[in-house]
Design a protein around this nucleic acid. Structure first.
Length: 566
DNA sequence: GCCGTTTTCGGCCCGACTGTTTTCAGTCG
């Protein structure tokens, strides 16, 4: 029973209430669903502490439904409504342009209950004859269905598109037809998954700008085009929204389109309380602009500390900013080293490439982790190679400002008792204990394995990775207990934003910050070219509200070595 | 259905765009 399961139930309740015209109930369910999705802890845990009502958007009625779900696996009201609307809302809402009302119209008019029915109706051209729909609607539905068929999720991992989007924006800047271009939306917030690409530009002639500055090589189709906005299909597999604003409004436009939606609702509410009005064009008293040119001015005019984009999820950041108590999260330039670069084979060429790439990323040091599974095989060849690597690193470090920290990565389900190398090798190397969670083991077993290994203290840093790309890594593992054990035993926890290898979710990391645990950031680069993912790892720390002082890599090489006890 | 530093009742973000029902509802962010 995961949080996302119950979030889906509330989202569908929202859809059904909307069909029945109960707008506010719908809004309430929608809000509760979003809140539950952004929790870092299982609802069970919150329930067992009797704290369900502390969740934003959960009142007495929704609390009852959550309890009912946790205790019986069902929600009565949902079952009752669903019997009247036997429709796969979750599936059908993936289709662009279909909301609750249109889905209901498709159901009553054509008996469509899911994506399969919809596809059949499109193929037999029944949609265009349906009242409220037309030829264009049918074409749009068909296009969206084709897109859905090519992928399992409507969102892509940030790391899979981040760097291409940067290139695209760079091309726009070079086009010279606009004065300024910025990426906003979930990419600016560095959300783990991205549903679309939002880009803003400054130009005095918006019409012309919208026509001319889109780099053709990235655009595969146009969805909508108005005087202030153009929506397109991008070659990277997502839709892109481009908007043009004047310089006076650019800050408020950035603020508005960076989101999140929930953060903005709270911001507007705050503005109203102060007798102001906030929209994408500025912050106004009556109709006189108070702020809007830059984001800082808007936050400041509302009596808030500046909130970094990564924290804008309405999970307490506005309240903290009012009290000027936002944590000191690290800036991207504060991270001086990458503490997880994978080395499967040692050659001077590979090491040279790692050093060159890391320097290029602005780093001062990197930990190169040799795959330690050779230990269990007890074979000598790899151990000899590892020793060669140590010697080579010593030589390299002596003559360079850039430093390497040699280390070993060991699977943690392989205890220290199986380690057959001399103990001094283990104690002099930076040892990372890793566990890859594939979703087949039970949550209890996993928690137990991890706790046991933490207590045996044979590694310095815990590195968890997940082959399941579930958005909340809802394995049911007891992160709270794991992080507390880490803090108690002086073990660090690794955060990684590598898109090929899901690390600990930011919500789990944030929930753990009260345990006092310290964090290590790593790119988990398997190839030198992936060292750039250290930026995505930093983003996770920022989203998790982790203080710069709790991150080992924000220290320089000498201090970091000291902390790692090397 | 939720929520409260003017409220326990009466509000609840708001503007852009599309397509179709020729004046606006539905969807999106």
């Amino acid at each position: 029973m995961s949080n996302s399961e119950i979030a889906i139930i509330f989202d569908e309740l929202a859809d059904m209430e909307e069909i029945e015209g109960n707008r506010w109930e719908s809004l309430a369910y929608r809000k509760a669903a979003a809140s539950i999705r952004s929790l870092g802890v299982p609802l069970e845990t919150i329930y067992s502490k009797g704290e369900l009502r502390t969740i934003d958007g959960v009142g007495s009625a929704i609390e009852k439904k959550i309890i009912q779900f946790l205790e019986t696996g069902k929600v009565e009201k949902y079952a009752e409504m669903k019997s009247r609307y036997p429709i796969d809302f979750t599936g059908l809402r993936r289709v662009q342009g279909l909301g609750p009302k249109k889905i209901y119209a498709l159901y009553t008019g054509l008996g469509i209950t899911g994506l399969e029915d919809l596809k059949a109706a499109v193929e037999s051209h029944k949609i265009e004859k349906l009242s409220g729909f037309g030829k264009k609607s049918e074409d749009n539905i068909k296009r969206s269905l084709d897109l859905i068929a090519t992928r399992s999720s409507d969102r892509l991992p940030l790391g899979k598109i981040y760097y291409e989007v940067q290139n695209m924006v760079e091309a726009m800047r070079e086009s010279g037809t606009v004065q300024r271009v910025e990426v906003v939306g979930s990419i600016r917030r560095m959300k783990e998954t991205v549903g679309d690409v939002d880009i803003l530009a400054v130009s005095e002639s918006p019409d012309e700008a919208l026509r001319s500055f889109l780099p053709q090589k990235y655009v595969t189709g146009v969805i909508a085009s108005g005087p202030a906005k153009t929506s397109v299909n991008l070659s990277i597999g997502l839709n892109g929204d481009f908007r043009v604003f004047s310089a006076e409004s650019f800050g408020s436009a950035m603020q508005y389109f960076t989101g999140s939606k929930e953060h903005n609702i709270k911001m507007r509410d705050l503005a109203i309380q102060k007798g102001l009005k906030l929209n994408e064009y500025g912050l106004f008293r009556k109709d006189i602009p108070v702020a809007g040119e830059d984001e800082e001015g808007i936050y400041s005019a509302l009596g808030l500390q500046y909130v970094p984009p990564e924290m804008r999820e309405n999970t307490g950041e506005i309240e903290a900013a009012q009290k000027r108590m936002l944590p000191q999260i690290p800036e991207y330039v504060d991270i001086l080293g990458d503490l997880h670069v994978t080395v499967n084979r040692f050659t001077p060429e590979i090491i040279g490439e790692i050093v060159a790439t890391a320097r290029n990323e602005g780093l001062k040091y990197a930990a190169i982790l040799y795959d330690g599974t050779w230990v269990s095989r007890g074979s000598g060849a790899d151990y000899e190679e590892y020793k060669l690597m140590l010697k080579y690193v010593d030589k390299l470090n002596a003559g360079s400002e850039f430093r390497l920290i040699p280390g070993i990565r060991m699977p943690i389900n392989m205890g220290i008792e199986q380690v057959s190398v001399p103990p001094d090798t283990m104690s002099s190397a930076y040892v990372v204990g890793s566990l890859s969670v594939n979703g087949t083991s039970s949550a209890y077993d996993l928690t137990d394995t991890v706790l046991k290994s933490i207590k045996s203290r044979w590694f310095r840093t815990l590195s968890l990775s997940f082959t399941e790309a579930a958005p909340d890594r809802s394995t049911g593992m007891n992160y709270e207990e794991i992080f507390h054990a880490c803090a108690e035993n002086g073990i660090f926890v690794e955060l990684s934003g590598n898109p090929d290898d899901y690390g600990i979710h930011y919500t789990a990391a944030r929930a753990a910050s009260s345990s006092g645990v310290k964090f290590v950031l790593g790119s988990r680069a398997a190839l030198p070219g992936h060292i750039k993912y250290i930026k995505l790892s930093t983003a996770i720390a920022r989203r998790a509200w982790i203080e710069k002082s709790s991150i080992i890599n924000s220290a320089g090489y000498d201090r970091a070595k000291e902390i790692l006890q090397l």
